[in-house]
Amino acid sequence: MTVLVYAEHNNHELKAETHKLVNAAAKMGDDVHVLVAGSNCADVATQASQIEGVTQVLVADNAVYEHQLAENIAELVHSMAGDYSHVVAAATTTGKNFMPRVAALLDVVQLSDVIAVESADTFVRPIYAGNAIATVQSSDAIKVITVRASAFDAAATSNSAPISAVDSVFANNLSEFVSEEVTKSDRPELTAANIIISGGRGMQDGEHFAMLETIADKLGAAVGASRAAVDAGFVPNDMQVGQTGKIVAPQLYIAVGISGAIQHLAGMKDSKVIVAINKDPEAPIFQVADYGLVADLFEALPELEAGL
């Protein structure tokens, strides 16, 4: 039983999710191979080879894979999948994009957003915005799985697995990359951060998010947001935590001016410690918060900053 893990990266740097995927993959099979598909991605392959538990790194390094478009990445992974019992990718926008395509090409079902591995064919995944947890057994010969990285610990990095090249090239004439607009931030990535401070509609406008940012910088935290804050245009959508945004599970999650709708809780209720700051004592967020402070955030935040 060999598991193929699709490495999450940006052609220069391996993303932290991959270390967690390897840990999840080790629960499914004995051998873990990592596929790095991209362009000029030799550094990523080296980083992948250092992850504990990886027995082989495969590198498909070609200009056609630069933007990891679903059409040709799915063909590439499909062409390799026959040698594996499981094909695993992170439940990020990259993994969610191409993996169902791989599953359909293989004529198998995909298991999305897996949070626990019971056995090689039985997996646990949340449904209904995390309000129910389903245990599902797959009868497919090849299991195609996306993993919720935040549900697994990261594997250590003290390895030097062999690296070999994959020469198959699947060109794609159906879709074309036009441009990309990447949000710049010096803070840790939301999905990898140990501490997250998030703002909601209660922040009132985008400028007030600066108050969260100064606290985030003191704590080494990432800044998140609720859908209400994103829809109101306070902050960009990639900061959204929730069922339709990012799913996070940091050590500490501070929700400021967030009521705690079902869809937001789906994205953060597995955090170790939850703090809620809200002036409405009836806000549902207090039902999941370990520490709740009923206060006006515009008074509490400067005090919090001073107190750290």
Binding site: L69, T92, T93, E176, E180, T183
Partner: peptide
Amino acid sequence: TREIDGGLQTLSLQ
């Protein structure tokens, strides 16, 4: 234009 983890990506499809 697609919403991706790091921001936005624009693709052209046939």
